[in-house]
Simulated assay, not measured.
Amino acid sequence: MTSTDTNFSPAAQPEGTPLIAPSSTDHPLYDAVVGACRTVYDPEIPVNIYDLGLVYTIAIDDENAVNITMTLTAPGCPVAGEMPGWVADAVEPLPGVKQVDVHMTFEPQWGMDMMSDEARLELGFM
């Protein structure tokens, strides 16, 4: 089962909660989910969304449900309505994944400092 939610608002979080929640880096599916995210590209930028820093959190629970919180380079991005579905479609077929939910947020706002060194090099910023 896949769902996307583009109305996620960090304002609904309790005060003191970090804007970017930690990812489940110790979960056995984490690396595969990251790899799947790396297959999704913003059509206007020749770098995958993970290395661009658009994926803020990959949370995987004990039942292998994957919750991804991501952003876009700009709120007016022409693929804003499609990008969460692309991410969910990339992650859902992974063996062991029970469910994928992709939430869009614009808090904190994306900045070029969120890109990996590889992305900066690819785009000529290094």
Rank of each mutant, 00 (worst) to 15 (best):
residue 21 A to H: 02
residue 82 E to I: 14
residue 100 V to R: 04
residue 20 I to E: 08
residue 2 T to Q: 11
residue 53 G to T: 04
residue 2 T to F: 11
residue 13 Q to N: 15
residue 64 N to I: 06
residue 120 R to T: 04
residue 71 T to K: 07
residue 76 G to Q: 13
residue 82 E to C: 02
residue 93 P to G: 08
residue 9 S to L: 08
residue 45 I to T: 12
residue 12 A to Q: 13
residue 44 E to K: 12
residue 120 R to N: 10
residue 75 P to S: 09
residue 96 G to H: 08
residue 120 R to Q: 14
residue 115 M to K: 05
residue 60 I to D: 00
residue 116 S to G: 08
residue 73 T to H: 09
residue 108 P to K: 01
residue 12 A to I: 07
residue 75 P to V: 10
residue 22 P to D: 10
residue 74 A to V: 13
residue 112 M to S: 13
residue 104 M to N: 01
residue 120 R to Y: 03
residue 40 V to I: 15
residue 16 G to P: 05
residue 104 M to Y: 03
residue 112 M to V: 13
residue 1 M to K: 14
residue 15 E to V: 13
residue 28 P to F: 11
residue 67 N to P: 00
residue 89 D to Y: 02
residue 59 A to N: 15
residue 46 P to T: 12
residue 103 H to N: 14
residue 83 M to V: 04
residue 86 W to V: 05
residue 11 A to N: 12
residue 54 L to E: 04
residue 63 E to K: 14
residue 43 P to C: 09
residue 38 R to G: 05
residue 125 F to L: 15
residue 96 G to S: 02
residue 12 A to G: 03
residue 65 A to T: 12
residue 74 A to H: 11
residue 44 E to R: 12
residue 69 T to G: 00
residue 51 D to Q: 12
residue 45 I to H: 00
residue 124 G to H: 06
residue 85 G to S: 12
residue 88 A to N: 01
residue 4 T to E: 12
residue 123 L to T: 05
residue 15 E to D: 11
residue 87 V to D: 02
residue 56 Y to W: 10
residue 68 I to G: 03
residue 32 A to P: 01
residue 107 E to N: 09
residue 121 L to T: 14
residue 34 V to M: 03
residue 80 A to S: 13
residue 6 T to C: 11
residue 104 M to D: 02
residue 89 D to T: 07
residue 75 P to I: 10
residue 82 E to D: 14
residue 73 T to N: 08
residue 110 W to H: 07
residue 73 T to F: 07
residue 70 M to L: 13
residue 62 D to T: 14
residue 119 A to N: 00
residue 8 F to C: 02
residue 116 S to Y: 10
residue 28 P to W: 13
residue 26 D to N: 15
residue 1 M to I: 12
residue 86 W to C: 05
residue 47 V to H: 07
residue 89 D to G: 06
residue 81 G to R: 07
residue 1 M to S: 12
residue 35 G to T: 09
residue 49 I to G: 05
residue 43 P to A: 05
residue 109 Q to P: 06
residue 36 A to H: 01
residue 50 Y to T: 00
residue 66 V to Y: 01
residue 64 N to C: 08
residue 27 H to N: 14
residue 121 L to A: 15
residue 72 L to Q: 01
residue 19 L to R: 07
residue 33 V to S: 00
residue 80 A to H: 08
residue 43 P to G: 09
residue 44 E to C: 08
residue 71 T to Q: 12
residue 126 M to W: 12
residue 95 P to R: 06
residue 40 V to C: 09
residue 17 T to M: 11
residue 88 A to M: 03
residue 41 Y to H: 14
residue 71 T to D: 11
residue 61 D to F: 06
residue 122 E to F: 09
residue 28 P to V: 13
residue 8 F to I: 02
residue 72 L to S: 07
residue 57 T to A: 09
residue 98 K to Y: 03
residue 52 L to P: 00
residue 81 G to A: 14
residue 98 K to G: 06
residue 65 A to R: 15
residue 18 P to I: 05
residue 8 F to L: 06
residue 33 V to C: 03
residue 18 P to T: 06
residue 104 M to W: 04
